[in-house]
């Protein structure tokens, strides 16, 4: 157990809104960064956008697929919730209001769907959206959000 606790499993977290604005970027462990933050965030958003459109298009059972590349209505079609490479795992959640949460972790992490839901409902909404002085659609820096998030991810296995 000591070995697990001593190796941090979280890598980073992105929060985007529907317009592709990166509302928040949180990094725990990322020794390798090759792109500027702006390019990095744009690439991440683009990856999710395309992947979502591909996954919906390849759906063998669901209806209303639309054309590949043609704009989908939000909530239309299926979506993916994670993918794993040999070096990391990416977990993804999107709210009907277009808020996208992306959590990058060690590849050995289990299902994080509930964790993302928790971060959205109990941390993002509570500490960011409800702050009357926060302007919706703008990137935020929020101490309480960071502290609560740090504490919460420590509990994840």
């Amino acid at each position: 157990m000591a070995a697990i606790a001593s190796t941090p499993r979280m890598r980073c977290l992105y929060i985007f809104n529907r317009d592709g604005v990166c509302l928040h970027y949180h990094v725990w462990l990322r020794p390798l960064t090759t792109l500027s933050p702006h390019q990095d965030q744009k690439l991440m958003f683009g990856l999710l956008f395309s992947l979502k459109s591909f996954t919906a298009k390849m759906d063998p059972v669901g209806g209303n697929k639309g054309n590949l590349g043609a704009p989908n209505l939000p909530g239309q079609g299926c979506s993916f919730h994670s993918f794993r490479t040999n070096t990391y795992k990416l977990s993804f959640m999107e709210s009907p209001s277009g808020i996208k949460l992306i959590l990058i972790t060690d590849p050995r992490m289990g299902d994080l769907r509930d964790a993302l839901k928790y971060i959205y409902s109990n941390i993002y909404v509570e500490y960011v959206v409800k702050n009357p002085l926060y302007t919706p659609g703008q990137p935020f820096k929020c101490e309480l959000f960071n502290a609560t998030l740090d504490q919460y991810v420590k509990t994840l296995q």
């Binding site: 529907r18 317009d19 592709g20 744009k42 958003f45 683009g46 209505l73 939000p74 277009g98």
Partner: peptide, 8 residues
């Protein structure tokens, strides 16, 4: 109903 579009 506004469709989702690539924003950049």
């Amino acid at each position: 109903q506004v469709a989702e579009e690539y924003p950049y």
